[in-house]
Design a protein around this nucleic acid. Structure first.
Lengths: 138, 138
DNA sequence: AGTAAATTTGCAACAATGATGCAATATTTT
DNA sequence: AAAATATTGCATCATTGTTGCAAATTTACT
């Protein structure tokens, strides 16, 4: 279970580059979910917008980060805590969005329940997002 | 329970205009979820892009349609079957996205289960999306 | 039905987000 | 350290969504 940027990159056989390290470190230090805009604000002076897009795509493909479903059209990314195999994420935890501070938190302990679907439907993957007030904002 | 466009508009005290009728009829005839792009393809020749945006916003505010969370950055809308009060949607059904035909289906019969959250978190609203293969694509 | 008031629409312009091709640069491999 | 490979930055473009404002439409009121 590596927890520093370089180890994670090595483990996924990715070149160790400045942008990948910086972006990954930002995820590691932040904890919650991040959007492209968040990252651009944080490291955008050092790296091109396009590089950030491509880095995020690479991280998703390798299973280093995962996408979080939202109803606005913003794409949010969060670190995978379980080690996800490349191309096959197996996070199945609930995501929590705080209405107050707007932070998105991975509830790694809370597993998405299995639901019974109508006849004919074959489930493959589930996502669940709960909104409300987080511990810090109460 | 009105099922035609004009009645729904009247019930929500909205002006009866061509665009609103056409867009609402498209939802009524389609059944599944629609994106702005879907609607633009269908009625885009008749109405301006901006009008479609504003119409969809109005419908969401009035509780005529609701948003469906996605991991790509596309906003999807679907008709509310339960009558949602303006500003307060109370759909709590599971959404199904078919990996084959890419259709998004509201599983009105399937209620989102309640999950137990860690200490401090106060839930307010839940969303659940299941992907897989739908009945028609099997 | 006809007119005034209120609402909605279309247009123009703009901002943000995301994708692609290609040459320059950095990283890895040998 | 040089060659091979991979990544980056730049320029450019497409898509998506927003806002202000004048023109057109719808509704409300006699």
């Amino acid at each position: 279970m590596p927890k520093n940027a370089v180890d994670i990159l090595k483990q996924n056989r990715l070149s160790i580059t400045g942008s990948r390290q910086k972006i990954l470190e930002f995820f590691l230090s932040n904890g919650g979910a991040l959007s492209h805009a968040d990252i651009e604000k944080n490291v955008g002076e050092a790296f091109d917008r396009v590089t950030i897009y491509r880095t995020l795509q690479t991280f998703v493909e390798k299973g280093i980060i995962h996408l979080i479903p939202t109803t606005d059209n913003s794409i949010k990314y969060a670190l995978c805590k379980n080690d996800c195999a490349p191309g096959h994420h197996h996070d199945n935890h609930v995501h929590f969005i705080c209405d107050e501070c707007e932070k998105i938190i991975c509830l790694d302990q809370v597993t998405i329940p299995v639901v019974r679907l109508p006849k004919g439907f074959t489930p493959q993957h589930s996502e669940m997002v709960v909104t409300g007030i987080c511990g810090e904002c109460r």
